[in-house]
Structure formats: structure tokens, C-alpha cells
Amino acid sequence: MGKDAMRRLLWPLVALVIAIAYPFLFSTPFEQRLGALVLLYAIAASAWNIVGGYAGQVSVGHVVFFGCGAYAAMGAYAHFALSPLVGIPVGIIVSVAIAAVIGVPTLRLSGHYFSMATIAVAELVRLIVTNTDYLGAGVGLSGPTVPRNVFDLSFVSALPYYYLFLAVLVLTLGITWWMADSRMGFYLRAIRDSERAARSLGARASRVKLYAFMLSAGLTSVGGTLYATMFGFVDPDSGLGILISVKMLIMAALGGAGLLFGPLVGAAILVPLEEISNNLLGGKGAGLTFVLYGAIIVLIARFQPGGILTLINRLWTRRSKPPETQAAAGAVHAP
């Protein structure tokens, strides 16, 4: 048992050590910023993973919560001259409330219909914000351009952002781990496999799904606040564009949806891929970046739809265990 726990902790610890050491191994400002972006997207994708991966409710409206956090941060600065960090609690409260309001009706829907309903909500919110002057309408809100103090979180170096994001990511993954191991985690996985069966065995499916949705919303909002704080600007396209939801989804799916480290692996592959392909090809003006990006996603969807971590887990268990126990070992949290 002790040995088993150690084995389970080994890889997370290795990942953490690599993450802490990364800025020293790759020390140019661009590489450090790239690292910070990976962590940022990993936070958002991990938050999405709670409801999209574990509970199997594929939300395409998570950008609403991301936007809540981003707008709360910039709004706190623009309207009240407060630190954008105020956006974290405000964003969490607002997005959890919104999640409760939209979760009750939409979580009754199953499969694609839930996804479609969340898209509708996201577009609706984007249009409302686009026409609300208080939220900057189509123009957007800007953050502090010249930092007044350290709480404005406006740094030249990406290093402070990097470690802040790392801390938040560790917290997010910690909460996810705790949730997945608790009764709720088992309920969620049961619901994902068959909601009807789970209900018949006494799982309160609606309530559990709603809790997961609210938890996921709150964490996504933190990601949004951090994003807006780093870039110092949010407008309807960059804070509420449907592509952000899609990015969270793709990152989690690529790494392995429903696996603790899936979204991190996905972000660690896709963010550098996007940035570096833009660096190499963007200046030519041929739009090749998205062709390359899209092609890799298509290849993975075709050949490894379970995500990269599932593939690694399978190869790992095949090598280290006799074939009979393969199925049982699987991934840490896989069904």
C-alpha cells in the first residue's frame, strides 16, 4: 500500500520539480512567458476537465466563466481603481452564481444537447457584454498600464506570473485530485459511464453534476482573472470568444479528458506548438500556423482519441505488468 502510494506520487512530484526548474532551464523572456502561458491554459483546461472530463458533460460555454474572471479583474481596476486581484473572489462568486442558474436547466440535457445549450449561453453572454457600456462594450476594458504597486501584478518579467500560475495550477489539480478520490468523484465517473445506472444505484445525479459544474466554473474564472491580469486587456473577443472554450476542450481531450494530468499534458503540447508555429510561419503572412495546428489535432483525433496520457499509460502498463492485469491498471482515474 505504501509502495502504491509512492508510485502514485512519483510522477506528480517529478512533474512539479520539472515545472519549478523550467524557468532556469529555459531562461529567455519568451521561453519563460511561454511556460507561463502553458500553465495558464492548463489551469483553465483542468478546471474544464472536472465537468467535461470526469463528469462527461462536454461544456462549450466555459468561456463565460473565463470571461467573468477576466472582466471582474479589469472592471475592478477600471471602475474602482482596485488591484486586478480583486477579480479572483468577485469572479468566483459571479461565475458560481451563473453556473448555478444556467446549470439547473441545461444539465438536464444530455450529450450534444448540453453542449449546444452551453454554446448558446456563451454567445448570448458575449452579445450582452458587447452591448453593455459599463463592461466596455465592443471596446473592452484595460488594466493598469503603469503599475502603481506590486498588487497590480504588472511585471516586465514573466517569472512572477509563472510561479503564481504554477501555484494556482497545483491548487487546481489538488482540488481535482481530492474531488476525484472523494465520493463525488466516484459518482461523477458513474454518471459519465451511464447516468441511468448511476441514478438507479442511488447517486443524486442532478445535484452532483451541478456541484461539479459550479466548482469547475469557479476555477475557470480564476484562470480568466490571471489571463486578463497578465495581458492587461479584455474585450468580447479575447475574453468571451467561443474559441477559448474550444481551446480548453481540445487541450483536455488531447492530453486525456478525465485524467488528472491530461489537460496539463495537452497544454504543454498545444501552447508551444501554436506559439512556435506562429513564430516560424506567421511572419510569412500565409496563415500556415493554423493549417499546421489543425493538422496535428486531426491526426491525434484520428489515431489517439483517448488522449496522449491514455496512450502512455497503456504502453507503460503493457511493459511493466503481465497482460491479465492490464485492464484493471489502466489510468489512475480512468474507468
Binding site: 473592452g140 489571463y227 495581458f231 486587456f233 474585450d235 473577443d237 479575447s238 506562429n278 513564430n279 506567421g282 511572419g283 510569412k284 503572412g285 500556423t289
Partner: peptide, 12 residues
Amino acid sequence: VVFADNQGSPAT
């Protein structure tokens, strides 16, 4: 001149 693509996104 080194050209770079902003992809229409403030972050990029």
C-alpha cells in the same frame, strides 16, 4: 524588418 502575425488577438 521582422514581421510577426498578431492573428487578430490582443494576447498574441
